[in-house]
Simulated scan of single mutants.
Amino acid sequence: MTDILVLGAGYTGTAAAIRAAVRTRRLGGRVTLVNASPRFTERLRLHQTAAGARLADHALEDVVAGTGIEFVLGRVAALDAGRHEVRLEDGRVLGYDKLVYALGTVTDDSVPGVAEHAHTFDDHQRAVRLAERLDALRTGTVVVAGGGLTGIEAATELAEAHPHLHVVLLSRGRPGAMMGERARAYLEAAMERLGIEVRAGVEVTKVLPDAVELAGGELVHSDATLWTTGTKGLPVAAGSGLTLDARGRIVVDSALRSVSHPDVYAVGDAAAVSQRFGVLHGTCQGGIPTGLHAADSLTATLRGRTPKPFRFGYVHQPLSLGRKDAVIQFTRPDDSPRRAFLKGRAAILYKETVSSSPLTTYKLLKRGLVPVALFSLTAGPGA
């Protein structure tokens, strides 16, 4: 038997576990999936949870049922890559022959006051706490720090769900700077329509209980602050002995194996994956494809074959603007914007299609199939 341990049951880890279980079943593979929560969390929809939406609740044991995967409920406390051991917070120790690290990243809380006073989207419960805080406010100001896709989606969702609250979006650069001019102009008009106050070119230096402090000392009042400005690797990775990059991500080779410990595969946001255009940035587009590729690389290794190199190209930047609007910026494989984009109802339909629940994908994976849509996320010869 080969003990395959998968840490983290988000989009990527769950896909990797199911794929590995199906592909290695006849090779003696025995897959164990570890997660801190018994439920499957759709992180792409946490901004909806924060706005008060009640999403479907899926038990992870049900999601992986029929695959032979053993589900272990527990939070990872430490990983010793040299000893091939994982220790959980309750003291249990799990050994492995092969490991897939899919614990993702957490909010970078290095700015003073973020950990104590800001809300984040690190997990479902944190999004629920923000929803409860906003429901308790009859009037007030909500500050969203960060002008990337997460910050924009959160700001528009909260402004639409709570029109009695004043939403302020703070950003170092122009919100949506990664998009083309026409798509960015559309999202700016949407934010203006929703009454969002956008302050670009500012830097938050401190988060206080009732305000955020900007560089230069200005205070912006806040009854609730949401922090979306960046992520970092977990302390588990830092203490594992694995080679990491400056952001705490595990550095991997073309097969998605750790460059220092080849029995460890890293996927999703937790991995520093190099392509010809640079290192992948955290995105849902790259998550499941890396999980599937790691499982395939692991399977090839067990068969004594050389794993194929991972190749990936971006396709789009899908962006919700509340429940009634959206904009989709189509991109080149390196994520630079093309001329084409969608807006309004067409964009809503497109966004809901590509960002729909992955449960259908997992059902297909259990049958040994790969959804055709995922092939569009891997770069072709010209990427």
Rank of each mutant, 00 (worst) to 15 (best):
L369N: 07
M191E: 09
R247F: 14
C284V: 13
G8A: 05
D245K: 00
A224C: 06
P163H: 03
D123W: 07
P371R: 03
L369Q: 14
R45W: 12
V76W: 01
T353Q: 14
I18M: 02
P163F: 10
S258L: 01
T24Y: 07
L256R: 02
S355G: 04
P309H: 08
I348F: 02
G248V: 00
L60F: 02
A9C: 12
H47I: 05
A131M: 06
L302N: 02
R276N: 13
A155C: 08
A15C: 03
R23H: 08
P337N: 00
G52W: 01
T2A: 15
V86D: 04
K366R: 14
D57G: 07
A383P: 05
H221Q: 15
D253L: 01
G151D: 00
I4D: 09
T49E: 11
L280E: 00
L377D: 11
V279K: 10
R126D: 13
P358G: 07
K343M: 12
A326Q: 08
P337I: 02
S297Y: 04
A266C: 04
A78Q: 10
A326I: 09
G322D: 05
Q48I: 07
T378V: 15
V279Y: 13
G216D: 03
I4H: 06
R26G: 07
V212R: 00
H84T: 08
E89R: 13
G74H: 05
V251Q: 01
A246M: 06
G10S: 11
R83L: 13
G140T: 09
R19C: 14
S254E: 15
A383W: 04
K206R: 15
L321H: 03
T225M: 05
L134P: 01
I348T: 03
G13C: 04
D109V: 15
V142W: 02
A270E: 04
P262N: 07
H119C: 07
T139G: 15
S260A: 13
Q125P: 02
G29E: 12
L364G: 05
V128L: 13
R249G: 06
A81N: 08
V264D: 01
G104D: 05
R129P: 01
D97E: 13
T290Q: 13
R30S: 12
A50E: 03
R129C: 07
V267G: 06
Y350L: 03
E160D: 11
M191R: 09
L194M: 12
A21K: 01
R26Y: 03
A237I: 06
L292D: 06
G91M: 02
A77E: 14
R26T: 10
A131F: 07
F40M: 03
A373D: 14
L242E: 03
V259A: 03
V86A: 10
G216S: 03
F121M: 08
E89D: 14
H58E: 12
A238W: 09
V93C: 09
T150K: 10
S355D: 12
V264M: 01
